[in-house]
Design a protein around this nucleic acid. Structure first.
Length: 124
RNA sequence: UUCGCCGGGCGGACAGCCGCUGCCGGUUCGCGGGCUACGCCUGGCGGGCCGGGGGAGGAAAGUCCGGUCUCCAUAGGGCAGCAUGCCGGCUAACGGCCGGGGGGAUGCGUUCAAGCGCAGCUCACGGAAAGUGCCACAGAAAAUAUACCGCCGGCCGCAAGGCUGGUAAGGGUGAAAUGGUGCGGUAAGAGCGCACCGCGGACGGAGCAAUCCGUGCGGCAGGGUAAACCCCAUGCGGAGCAAGACCAAAUAGGAGGGAAGGAGCGGCCCGCUCCGUUCGACCCUCGGGUAGGUCGCUCGAGCUUGCCAGCAAUGGCAGGCCAAGACGAAUGGCUGUCACCCCGCAAGGGGCACAGAAACCGGCUUAUAGUCCGGCGAAUCCG
RNA sequence: UCCUCAGUAGCUCAAUGGUAGAGCAUUCGGCUGUUAACCGAAGGGUUGUAGGUUCGAGUCCUACCUGAGGAG
């Protein structure tokens, strides 16, 4: 079992999230940048024994918009990425920076973009 | 019925699938502890899973005021600074709210008119006889006072006019010109005199007070500006939950003690290398303290129902209820049906606001699709 | 969670409460064979928005909007 939580693998417990500022800083400085139309992602593979799953975090700066828009953008990407988290094999740390297009994109567009990110991380 | 204004309320509903979070219950694993010890117990700590019930707002916003709470020196007096400013009440407190008074423009009624009455609206509404400053241009003069055109008297002159004095009613300037209107008075005039209005102060009455009413007095003190400095009265110590309290790894350095060895290469010995035996390697203990963690953290000036007091704001009594507590930050994502609004004859299409708790309360201000209730005003229809 | 500052012509900045200006830029004319430079002239502003005080507001007061910076 590479990841814990959820009977069908769609769960999103704290062990699958980035929680500390130091973890975010590390991913930003050492990770590789994966740009996209709806968001930009920073990915970093951790030096950990096999069996550990990926961890993700979401960041929207003040310049993105007001609190409602920042929260909505983070929630939409998180829900789209959550159901595909099982497709990422390996201990990846991923930080996602949403772009404003997320607010107007349809659910289908969002799923395609997330699928692209998952495939890129799955290859390496 | 429609539109506008004011006050108050609501601010999508349901279902399916997949998630998050703190609380309660169960189960399981790891660590710790205990025991009658190859197993069992455990409400000590941590993780997984299952179930239950809870999970954004009227503004959560702006951070404009006031408090609770915490620390700073005990928060007492004074200076400075800041804020408030008709009166009374409410309140934990307020720059908030309620009631009253006064002013202002508007409308209606009444009147020849001035004025008076009523209605809703509105006002940062202490002091300009404590002092200082400023008032451009125009104008004679902008506050000590003064006189351009005028008016009137006297003198000179044939006359035009000049000199001198009186006056501030009229003209003119200005945002503002030393009370207003009328009558008398006068050479012309002037509160010079009188009546009414205004103003000031006195007395009497009503009211807790602001203030109002009445009587008689004074010929008038005197421009505006205090959102200019200022004066008076009242209030305010400062910082803010990242406040503050507690636990506390690694590394460096500090204090105390032990100490002649310690560490690395290697399966072991030998050997080699490094650090050390005055400058103390290494080991133990201690305190400050960083990462990190825990508490503060949600039961409170709380919500709600009824009765009572009060014009009201609000308060009292009795009953009932517990309603987010997160921390790279949950309260959601996707799909469908319905409700509502707009366009369209229809099929159908589009839209569904402002906006996201961050210690917590009381206010203010600002944003807000649609909709409901009450009151007022206008238009139209029916009787 | 809080604090401070700024907003004036297209840009950079001035303006004791008394007619909103300067430099650069733009347009037109001149000079030159032409351009640049130079000379002359012109246009361009709801002083961020809305109220208020005042006879009069860019300036004073209040509320809002936008932007910039800072503290832990």
């Amino acid at each position: 079992m590479p990841r814990e939580g959820g009977a069908n693998g769609y769960g999103f417990p704290k062990s699958s999230r980035l929680l500390k500022p130091s973890e975010f800083r590390n991913t930003y400085q050492n990770g590789i940048r994966v740009p996209g139309r709806l968001f930009a992602a920073f990915c970093l593979r951790r030096e950990e024994p096999a069996g550990a799953g990926p961890r993700v975090g979401f960041t929207a700066p003040r310049a993105f918009g007001k609190a409602v828009q920042r929260n909505r953008a983070k929630r939409r990407i998180r829900e789209a990425l959550r159901v595909r988290l099982g497709g990422v094999n390996g201990a990846w740390d991923i930080v996602v920076n949403p772009r404003r297009a997320v607010l107007t994109a349809t659910a289908e567009e969002l799923r395609r973009e997330v699928e692209r990110l998952v495939n890129q991380c799955g290859k390496r």
